[in-house]
Simulated assay, not measured.
Amino acid sequence: MITYEYPFNERIRTLLRLEDLFHKANGFLQRDGSQEHHVVLLTLFEILDVAGRADLKMDLIQELERQRQSLLSYRNNPDISEDALSGALYEIEQASAALLGMTGKIGQHLRDNDWLMSIKSRASIPGGVCEFDLPSYHYWRHQDPGVRRDALVAWLQPMLPLRDALTIVLRLLRASGRPEHHIAVGGAFQLMLGGSSSQMVRISLKMHDPYIPEISANKYALNIRFIRPDSDHRPRHCDNDVEFDMLFCNL
Rank of each mutant, 00 (worst) to 15 (best):
Y4I: 09
E5A: 09
Y6W: 07
F8K: 07
N9I: 05
N9C: 13
E10Y: 08
R11E: 12
R11S: 09
I12V: 15
R13K: 11
L16Q: 07
L18A: 08
L21N: 11
K24E: 14
A25R: 01
N26T: 07
G27H: 14
Q30C: 01
R31T: 14
R31I: 05
Q35C: 08
H37D: 00
H37W: 02
L42E: 14
L42S: 13
T43Q: 10
D49N: 08
V50A: 08
D59I: 05
E63D: 11
E65G: 13
R66K: 14
R68F: 09
Y74H: 07
N76Q: 14
E82K: 13
D83A: 15
A84Y: 12
L85K: 02
G87D: 13
A88G: 03
Y90K: 15
E93T: 12
E93H: 07
Q94A: 12
L99K: 02
L100E: 09
G101D: 01
T103N: 02
I106C: 04
S118M: 11
I119G: 01
K120E: 01
S121H: 14
G127D: 08
G128D: 04
G128V: 04
V129T: 15
E131F: 08
E131P: 11
D133Y: 08
L134M: 09
Y137G: 06
H138M: 03
R141M: 15
H142E: 14
D144C: 04
P145H: 06
P145V: 03
L152C: 06
A154S: 11
L160I: 08
L162N: 04
R163N: 09
D164G: 01
L166R: 00
T167R: 08
L170F: 02
L170G: 07
R171A: 10
R171H: 10
A175P: 01
S176K: 02
I183Q: 09
G187F: 02
F189K: 01
S197F: 05
S198M: 12
S198R: 13
V201Q: 02
R202Q: 15
K206P: 01
H208R: 09
D209P: 02
P210R: 01
Y211V: 09
E214Y: 05
E214L: 10
I215W: 01
N223P: 00
N223H: 14
N223A: 12
S231V: 13
D232S: 15
P235C: 01
D239I: 06
N240Q: 11
E243Q: 12
F244I: 01
L247Q: 12
L247E: 14
C249K: 00
L251T: 05
